[in-house]
Write a protein that binds this DNA or RNA. Structure first.
Lengths: 249, 249
DNA sequence: AGAATTCGTGCAAATGTAGGCAATTTAATT
DNA sequence: AATTAAATTGCCTACATTTGCACGAATTCT
């Protein structure tokens, strides 16, 4: 049997079944496992498949990091996300909300950090999946096409059964007097559930949202333990939030 | 024997068998290995075939022709998905499994069809969200990075609380005797739960997977109500599935 | 934590490759 | 027809690749 031929067979098997064992292939092709191992190593180097312990898996599954390119105020959001990273500790359990800022946080989480991440956001979950150290748990429920997050009674019920160390949430509007508010009632219900299932809640918000409000209220401002904006913590714009027992980063 | 004639023979052998061994050809044509080697070298230079260590392979057979970003056997999968579309009725409630074939189904569902879709697959959910008529419900749970689907006890529990009209599932391996089998134990548990929560189960599988099996079993073959492959329903390859009360499309 | 796989490296045997060389065949020219 | 030049072929040798095995290290499973 020719080497090329063998590698082609291996590739087909991987594409067909998504995953293969070296032992199975060695058995099927009647060559030693070392040979298969070497083949898989080569194919991996050529980016034809992904080598894993004991076998190989198809690339088609693993490689998808989707991001819509023009995110509003991306630089500010990235700055916020970077500050939030400091709160992450190995072995921690966190919740990551939907929205572009939280997605940016998800993107910046180091791949090797050992962390358990809950989320109800499809894009965040997808992003987090590329990090090897993470355990990702999707909170299910009806998915809102607008926010791409699970909402509704089911999601809220699922949230009621967990308790995380930190939740990182975004908000539509934030005001030191009116607290966190939203345009959408369903979203508000979910935010409430998230906050309830968190020991500490971290708000990620660009400064542009400060001192704005809308019709439905997620929580009072002092339900927030830590607030992160792209601003310097001493910035005047944050003054009105200082006497609320909130840590400002 | 003329050189031209010999090279022609080599070429047709390569086209016929996709590959040849230098030793075989030398033997068959009763010339020295060196001569064959030189011939193959020339043919390779003329791009008539690809020379490899120990022999030659047909150009159409080379791995470089299979780019990894297009899905394996996409055309066949699309054909399957199109057949599956006929089963969808307005107002129906369905479950869509993960995997490339089911993703293709998700992609082809008409945007205006009024349908409630459950899924435990992140890519499928994301795909379905773009259709306005659909209600999408994500089944939550720990997300497997390999399959990008929710698996584990939580997902299974969530599945236990629903009952859908049709579930469209894929499988790693299918055999008329051994039934549906998988590589991964966790996946099997989820498939079982999916089947249990469906009134009818539709299997989507490309014919290449027929008559293959692996170690863990999802279900007997007659747990499947409808089986869809890219083949014509009358195809001989499907014969072994006919006496199992399965509708074959 | 202990057992069982799996991995990676080095090694040796077998097989395949490239290039030089001489013998033979083929083609062309005188 | 004889001669010469070119091409082809087979063989030989030195070198490269491939493959299976052994063994300690690393990883995963229970």
């Amino acid at each position: 049997m020719l080497k090329e031929e063998r590698q082609q067979t291996i590739l087909s098997e991987v594409e067909l079944h998504n995953r293969i064992l070296l032992t199975d292939i060695a058995d099927a092709l009647d060559v030693s496992i070392d040979t298969v191992r070497r083949d898989v190593k080569e194919l991996d180097a050529e980016n034809k498949l992904k080598k894993v312990h004991g076998g190989a898996i198809s690339l088609g599954f693993t490689s998808s990091s989707v991001r819509s390119d023009n995110i509003y105020r991306l630089e500010q959001k990235r700055k916020i996300a970077e500050k939030a990273l400091d709160l992450l500790k190995p072995g921690g359990v966190i919740f990551v909300d939907g929205g572009t800022t939280c997605s940016e946080l998800a993107r910046l989480i180091p791949a090797n950090l050992e962390l358990t991440c809950f989320t109800h956001s499809l894009p965040v979950a997808t992003e987090l999946l590329s990090k090897t150290g993470l355990t990702v748990i999707m909170v299910g429920g009806q998915v809102s096409s607008e926010s791409q997050t699970a909402i509704g009674a089911n999601a809220i019920h699922n949230l009621s059964e967990i308790k995380v160390d930190y939740s990182f949430i975004g908000t539509g509007y934030v005001d030191s007097y009116y607290g966190l508010t939203e345009f959408d009632w369903d979203i508000v219900q979910v935010k409430k559930a998230i906050i309830k299932s968190s020991k500490k809640t971290v708000l990620l918000s660009i400064s542009e949202k400060l001192n704005s409000q809308h019709r439905y209220k997620s929580c009072d401002i002092n339900a927030i333990n830590t607030m992160i904006t792209e601003l310097n913590p001493e910035n005047k714009l944050l003054d009105s939030f200082r006497n609320h027992d909130i840590r400002i980063l």
